[in-house]
Design a protein around this nucleic acid. Structure first.
Lengths: 208, 208
DNA sequence: CTTCGACCCTTCAAGTAAATCGGTCGAAAA
DNA sequence: TTTTCGACCGATTTACTTGAAGGGTCGAAG
């Protein structure tokens, strides 16, 4: 890592951001290994070779640090999903890519944060606010997919009320699906089949 | 309630069942008022004017009593849903009736057992086994709806693999939807719109 | 601007004693 | 034989206290 020994004025953003980055990486690592409750701010501070109080110069609370870490993880998932969606050609393929990629990414994260997850189940409200942010970003992705499909003619024109309801249905429905799939790790092949079928049904329905 | 003072031999099933029924009603009432953990077997026994030990003549554990009560509640919901489904004419209407009725019934039960529900969130595994039984019975209902739709030609022919996957998707998806809907009691009109749209999309899709 | 040590105060952990409660058993009642 | 109950057991919970831990603040120092 580049180190500046000169006292020449540095862009304050650069240095501050570097330290914040350091804090985040240390916190991320510690949270993954020991969960939220078993990591103290002194642990985090020690990991970056600073005093505990120093953390408060960069973050206003432990929760803010944790949220920052989680936001980064969520961003990673969203970015990955968005990329997969972008790559897919048709709306149906985009829908399928959305579900499949999110499921895969989620499973990966869940393995890393198993301790944090079990802590979440006790807190409940904590996981609630987390999901809110997640939902917003996913919501946008889904809306874009719908808009794309409508534009290409693959999906029939939908009123904004219909679009909103549809996004709500898909998001909460997917949530249940993922809960089920992540909980009991069934054979991935079965899950992939279910997901591709979901996308197909959404687009074409099961009508005769 | 009919009382038999005669000592003439009664069908043992009748008398035993009557007492079991008494226990269940008392337990049901107490569980609704005070939750599972705050109701002791002595409370239940006192409510039916018997000794605590007597309960063990009819049930082998507190859990069995609780499960019996919950099974009855679930049966009520399933029966109600099944009736609504039966009344609906088309597969699409059956699907919609299934979702709407279940949501309404669930909301009613949830209000009665708010204490038990919050206890469930701490136990987690308890609610898991509960849902298993529920899922089986719902699964059958959904399969019947699909079969009906296929028979009438409203739904295209589906392989048994497709049907199985579809039921899985619909059940876990509905689960997420209900979780969302029950959690934040949005305007019922919006929810009804979402549910009818869900049924429509499942049957006809959103394709152009 | 950045760091830190000392400090405050709420919360948590550990420990312990008493009570509670689910569950068992054998005897008594019917 | 069928049904009820009181006495009892053992594991869990509760209540309470206490000491430590940890989140957060502040002013001084570099």
């Amino acid at each position: 890592m580049a180190r500046t020994t000169l006292s020449m004025p540095i862009s304050p953003q650069t240095k501050e951001d570097a330290i914040r980055e350091n804090v985040m990486r240390a916190a991320q690592h510690l949270f993954q290994q020991h969960g939220l409750n078993n990591v103290t701010l002194e642990d985090v501070a020690r990991a970056i070779g600073k005093g505990k109080s120093t953390l408060y110069y960069y973050y206003k609370s432990k929760e803010e640090i944790f949220m920052a870490v989680m936001d980064r993880e969520i961003s990673e998932v969203v970015t990955e999903v968005a990329l997969a969606v972008k790559r897919a050609g048709t709306a149906e393929e985009k829908l399928q890519a959305f579900c499949a990629t999110k499921l895969r990414a989620l499973r990966k994260k869940l393995a890393l944060y198993s301790l944090v997850c079990s802590e979440m189940f006790s807190n409940a409200e904590f996981g609630c606010t987390m999901r809110q942010r997640y939902l917003q970003r996913e919501s946008k992705l889904l809306k874009d997919i719908l808009a794309f499909g409508i534009e290409t003619g693959e999906i029939r024109t939908l009123s904004s009320q219909e679009q909103e309801a549809l996004v709500f249905i898909m998001l909460s429905g997917l949530n249940g699906l993922e809960l089920e799939m992540v909980h009991n790790s069934n054979s991935p092949s079965k899950q992939d089949f279910a997901i591709s079928m979901l996308a197909r049904v959404l687009i074409h329905g099961i009508g005769a």
